[in-house]
Design a protein around this nucleic acid. Structure first.
Length: 605
RNA sequence: GCACCCGUAGCUCAACUGGAUAGAGCAUCGGUCUACGGAACCGAAGGUUAUAGGUUCGAAUCCUAUCGGGUGUACCA
């Protein structure tokens, strides 16, 4: 049980007694939260102002009366009224100590699983498989993976699905390239590299350096689209090539996911739904949800309108096109088929789409149409994030016109991680510390944990739904609010146990009593106890950055504690053991929460 | 044109969904000083939350208008 919940239980009977409207008690209780300013205590209750209005009293007097009504309890050391009627609560140190002791004994670190588990389907990553992954694919993959981990930890059933772009124009490009420009020797030697080369080569020939623009004109692009159309029509040569390319395309993706520690349950791409599309359109027509218009089949917009001409289309919310005039299907059709398949296969309570914010309108209409189609009980959520921009705030490009390849970014991150390690090693060695020589394997795993962690943390720590600036320095930062700082705090926890030659497992099951003797210990304990609230909030609002922010606060509290409170050289054995409990617990919390973010910890760095 | 998102310290971002003196990191300046790991700690400076009104006990947050930026607007996905 979280601290906030424990405090709310104290106030609930009082509010039920005082509030003229029983229904509002929940709202009032929700107004009990951690203080923003620690001078005001640990938690604050802000409901007195609102309640005073409802009962026609002066807020300050009411707040004082409520404080007077608090039953004697072991939680609250002092409750005082401040300002217009804030009730400031300072928690009892013995209570905090005993709570943190319970937390140390709990495998789940005091975080209880949800009472009513739900089933989620999470749509994430979704790259076009025919081309190398670039940094633009990072956010969906990383944020999505983190949400999968968080919701699972909370006890939900989560099915993750990688809706691969494996049936679009990009294959037309590959087929065109293969037919006209392939190097057989190169293909036989290494199909993955040759396909990547062909993709870029055709792109360059067509002079459409814009990686995400499949609509560009030009003869070559027209020819590519023709190949795509033949593929969709079942042309045996092109289908054969598609089947030939697919394994190589998937092979391009695999190492990236592996490096990122991302595992996705399913990879049901667009091609998987291809054969269902005619039936989807027929069904929507039969149910009179869709109608024919201008030779195409569309679902009218929310107002029931279909624009008559282009001028009107510019002013109206668009209808959803599900079959083009030429008979081809659109991504809306595929998305509807996907919803149907997922609903019938997994019967989920909610479907989350971790997709670029630019697709907000598409999802708005898609979800509305899915509900009209009969999936009204599913909680559809678009989890948007901004696109990547350069420092000039324009769509991100490198000098040669392409976007940065993800593999290169990860290489660089790991390289930097290694460099930082070598520096630290040399520095400590020169100062005469006893530093063990690590094997190259261990060094590499440290470098990767630090490097990839930095990249992931940079993406997870913001709440930006609008665009964000891609910046190598920021992505690879190792100071301040970064994964490195938190990993370092973890390594320092572990170092204490190593140095003291103490088996930390003895501090799990039967942990010694925690003593709170300094303000640094107290602050650290309060921060540790906020873990359940942080995880619950992150899960409820699909915001991994609540966890980075929690970890940052925790690591800061720990660093301050570390500096001020000797552990192995504590004044008494009792105090030493108490601090060891805290050090061990901080380490476990960091490890667990970083894991929910998909970031590794290392014993040394 | 219409719709959506956004505008917070020099820069990058928070602010627990309406709470107190708007917080962090980077950069800048100053201090700790040889260690249970300095990839650290402590501190200073930096703000009319784009602007103008409104709503109320209380607004970065809600409403209106204006200015500025971004994105999307049926036959690419």
């Amino acid at each position: 049980m979280s601290l906030a919940l424990a405090i709310r239980e104290l106030f609930e009977p009082i509010l039920i007694e005082l509030s003229p409207d029983r229904a509002k008690v929940g709202d009032y209780l929700a107004m009990i939260k951690p203080t923003t300013n620690s001078d005001h205590g640990d938690y604050q209750a802000n409901f007195a102002m609102a309640l005073a209005k409802a009962v026609g009293q002066k807020p300050q007097e009411l707040a004082k009366a409520i404080v007077g009504m608090l039953p004697s309890n072991e939680l609250i050391e002092s409750a005082s009224v401040a300002g217009p009627g804030f009730i400031n609560l300072r928690l009892n140190a013995d209570f905090l100590a005993s709570r943190v002791g319970m937390m140390a004994k709990d495998e789940r670190l005091g975080v209880s699983a949800v009472a009513n588990p739900k089933t989620f389907v999470i749509d994430l990553s979704g790259p076009n498989v025919a081309k190398p992954l670039h940094v633009g694919h990072l956010r969906s993959t990383i944020i999505g993976d983190s949400l999968v981990r968080i919701l699972r930890f909370c006890g939900h059933t989560v099915i993750s699905d990688n809706h691969l772009g494996d049936w679009g124009t990009q294959f037309g490009i590959l087929i065109y390239g293969y037919k006209h420009h392939r190097n057989d020797a190169a293909y036989d030697a290494d199909p993955v590299t040759e396909l990547a080369r062909l993709y870029i080569h055709v792109r360059n020939l067509a002079k459409t350096s814009d990686d995400d623009d499949e609509t560009a004109g030009g003869d070559i692009m027209d020819a590519c689209r023709m190949e795509t159309a033949k593929l969709h029509a079942g042309d045996s040569e092109n289908v054969g090539l598609w089947k030939l390319f697919m394994p190589a395309c998937l092979e391009m993706l695999r190492p990236i996911y592996e490096r990122l520690d991302v595992t996705i349950d399913h990879a049901l791409g667009e091609s998987f739904y291809h054969e269902m599309l005619p039936g989807i359109v027929e069904d929507l027509l039969a149910k009179k949800i869709a109608i024919e218009s201008n030779g195409a089949v569309v679902v009218p917009n929310a107002k029931g309108n279909i624009p008559k001409d282009e001028a009107e289309a510019k002013n109206e919310e668009p209808p959803a096109l599900i079959r083009k005039r030429d008979g081809a299907f659109t991504y809306t059709t595929t998305d509807l088929a996907t919803i149907k398949y997922r609903a019938e296969t997994w019967n989920p309570d909610a479907m989350l789409y971790v997709v670029d914010a630019r697709q907000a309108l598409h999802f708005k209409t898609l979800f509305a149409n899915a509900k009209r189609w009969g999936y009204s009980s599913i909680d559809f959520q678009h989890i948007p994030f901004g696109s990547i921009l350069g420092r000039d705030k324009k769509p991100y490009r490198t000098r040669d016109g392409g976007t940065v390849e993800l593999a290169k970014l990860l290489d660089e991150a790991a390289e930097l991680g290694l460099k930082k390690y070598e520096e630290s090693y040399a520095d400590r060695k020169s100062k005469g510390h006893d530093v063990p020589e690590l094997t190259d394997d261990v060094k590499r795993s440290i470098a990767e944990a630090v490097g990839y962690g930095a990249v992931k943390y940079a993406d997870l720590s913001g709440n930006r739904t609008t665009d964000y600036i891609f910046d190598y320095d920021k992505m690879l930062a190792t100071e301040g609010n970064t994964a490195t700082y938190i990993q370092y705090a973890y390594a320092r926890c572990r170092a204490i146990f190593r140095k003291g030659e103490i088996d930390e497992s003895s501090f799990h099951e039967k942990s010694p009593r925690v003593l709170i003797t300094t303000q640094q210990e107290r602050a650290l304990v309060v921060q540790l106890l906020k873990l359940p609230e942080a995880i619950e909030a992150a899960a409820a609002e699909y915001h991994p950055h609540y966890l980075t922010s929690y970890l940052w606060d925790l690591a800061k509290s720990y660093s301050t504690f570390f500096d001020a409170c000797p552990v192995l050289k504590a004044e008494t054995d009792e105090l030493k053991n108490s601090r060891l409990v805290l050090v061990d617990l901080v380490g476990r919390v960091i490890k667990q929460v970083l894991n929910l973010l998909g970031i590794r910890t290392v014993e040394r760095m």
